[in-house]
Write a protein that binds this DNA or RNA. Structure first.
Length: 501
RNA sequence: GGUAUCGUGGCCGAGCGGUUAGGCACAGGUCUGCAAAACCUGCUACAGCGGUUCGAAUCCGCUCGAUACCUCCA
């Protein structure tokens, strides 16, 4: 299974699926735009990073050595009123800017852990890379694509696009001429720019700005798009393999990154650009002002008008995996419930599979249609992943494999119908896909103390006695009362089990 | 207004010119004292109107609708 499957991915630069070719065989450099840590993580962030987590996991699985860089943005983004975001957060909370950044960075990491996302290889902070950003501004000026105005430095989009036809706008489909026509009043420092499409790569700080640094041009802070260019260059090189982020970053953020890198070194930053799509809530975009919003903790506690119950992190992860990363995904209570059940069923099938006895004697050595079907489904799952990381396809195959597992477990297939080696192959593939690639984990509460186990054993024994004496009233009372406190009794063929809801 | 993506059965959601996606719900069945759970089976849709093609959910055009971006939020 290792190395080298033919991987296709959708490149936003071309708008098409392309066969992936790493710059250095066997190695991949991947940069994903990380969060701005001025408030709690948005659910949409979680989706994006979960999507890239699965991508990262799959690339590792198929044998690549991956350097995954995801930044923490702790400076540089402006609010509507032109204030530095970090500074604004600081004023509200009466905290040091770096204290705000630290608090939300920790919260972000906690949430990534809850969703079972692997940490990136490197997680650089913008504030830790001011010299690199200043150097990049110098490079851009030296190559003639930026100009200084009153202590701020602007990227010259017009000159750049004239001298590098076809570059600016390739990602987003924007046309520079239209940007000119579309430009509006009220944009920051518009009057300083040569052209409305130009953007700042260094901003001169004003007295109220707290997070400022010395530079050759002024005491100020780096431009809004520069950190990603500077940090990706530092850790992955001037041109690397994959650059990812949310769809909403395509323009202007990523478009400007491309321009900056080209402006600084004459080279394109990334060969493949991957963009994840947005999350909707009940068919509409999430919006704080409309109340159409839900955050991760609310999802886990059920404390929201939009949902009827709480959902576990893995149920939510499964929900996300059911959709392709480039599609919008609509969060609905029904959808989450369906995912929760689907996830549980998948885990049940996994557990059943692990306990499946392999009976070599009954197998006559020939390959059956069931053997072929199972192997084909496993291959389908991998091919789904090879095809632009289509987790929905892979999950569907896994689901069907679960059906086979149950048929075997329930003896609906004769034991000679599936070869032992196919069962072994299924076991390992199932495990690999579910845990290593999808990053799911079993959430069955195993932390329950022995006390509860002991009590339940006693209660179910009492019920069994009542049933043996056909005392249905007593046995049903036990069952119904347990149901009221959220414990479901399951009468199975080979005994009674129970489960907390 | 401009740009992009999309509109699939009761719900969510794959599909990239010809074959069953899958999940949930629902129906039937197995099991059961009854029920639940579990498992099995079934359930043939593609916004509208034109066009291309032997053949279209899939390509093209128009209409309607949604979402995103253009206002830095992934």
């Amino acid at each position: 299974m290792k190395q080298q499957r033919v991987l296709k991915l959708h490149n936003s630069l071309s708008g098409k699926k392309e066969i992936f070719q790493p710059i250095v065989p066997g190695h991949i450099g991947m940069y994903v735009c990380g969060p701005t840590v001025y408030s709690d993580v948005h659910l949409g962030n979680c989706r994006t990073f979960t999507s890239f987590d699965v991508i990262y996991r799959y690339l590792l699985h198929i044998g690549y050595k991956v350097r995954y860089v995801r930044n923490i943005t702790d400076v540089g983004h402006l609010t509507d009123d032109g204030e530095d975001r970090m500074a604004k957060g600081a004023k509200v909370a009466q905290l040091e800017p770096m204290e705000v950044a630290q608090r939300y960075t920790v919260g972000f990491h906690d949430m990534m852990r809850i969703f079972n996302n692997l940490p990136p290889s490197i997680e650089p902070r913008a504030t830790g890379h001011i010299p690199e950003q200043i150097d990049m501004v110098k490079d851009i000026i030296d190559r003639g694509y930026a100009y200084e105005r009153n202590g701020s430095v602007y990227f010259n989009v017009i000159k750049f696009s004239q001298e590098n036809p076809g570059v600016y706008g390739q990602l987003s489909g924007r046309v520079v001429d239209e940007l000119m026509a579309e430009s509006r009043d009220g944009l920051k420092n518009q009057e300083e720019k040569n052209h409305p499409a130009d953007f700042a790569i260094w901003m001169k700080g004003r007295p109220q700005d707290i997070m400022v640094w010395k530079s050759p041009w002024s005491v100020g802070f780096p431009g809004w798009h520069l950190e990603c260019s500077a940090m990706s260059t530092k850790y992955l090189g001037q041109t690397f393999d994959i650059h990812g982020g949310g769809n909403d970053l395509k323009f202007p953020h990523h478009e400007n990154e491309v321009a900056q890198s080209n402006g600084a070194c004459g080279c394109s930053p990334a060969n493949y650009w991957l963009h994840t799509n947005m999350l909707l809530l009940n068919g509409k975009k999430m919006s704080k002002s409309d109340g159409n919003i839900i955050n991760p903790p609310q999802l886990f506690t059920g404390e929201s008008e939009h949902i009827s119950k709480s959902y576990s992190p893995m149920a939510v992860r499964f929900f996300m995996l059911q959709a392709h990363y480039r599609s919008t995904l609509d969060i609905t209570d029904d959808g989450l419930q369906a995912a929760e059940k689907g996830f549980k069923k998948l885990m049940d099938a996994y557990n059943t599979l692990q306990n499946l006895p392999v009976n070599a004697r009954d197998f006559d050595g020939s390959e059956t249609e069931h053997d072929r079907a199972i192997l084909a489904l496993i291959e389908d799952a991998y091919q789904g992943m090879d095809d632009d990381f289509n987790t929905a396809i892979a999950l569907a195959s896994l689901s069907e494999l679960g059906g086979y597992v149950n048929k075997i477990a329930h003896k609906q297939l004769a034991s000679g119908d599936v070869a032992p080696w196919v069962i072994e192959r299924l076991k390992s593939a199932f495990h690999t896909l579910v845990f290593d690639i999808f990053g799911l984990k079993d959430e069955e509460s195993k932390e329950d103390s022995g006390t509860v186990e002991g009590l339940m054993e006693l209660i179910l024994e009492l019920r069994a006695n009542a049933r043996a004496q056909k005392d249905w009233a007593a046995s049903d009372k036990i069952r119904d009362t347990l149901a009221e406190v959220g414990i479901q009794v399951k009468d199975g063929k080979d005994g009674v089990s129970w489960e907390k809801n």
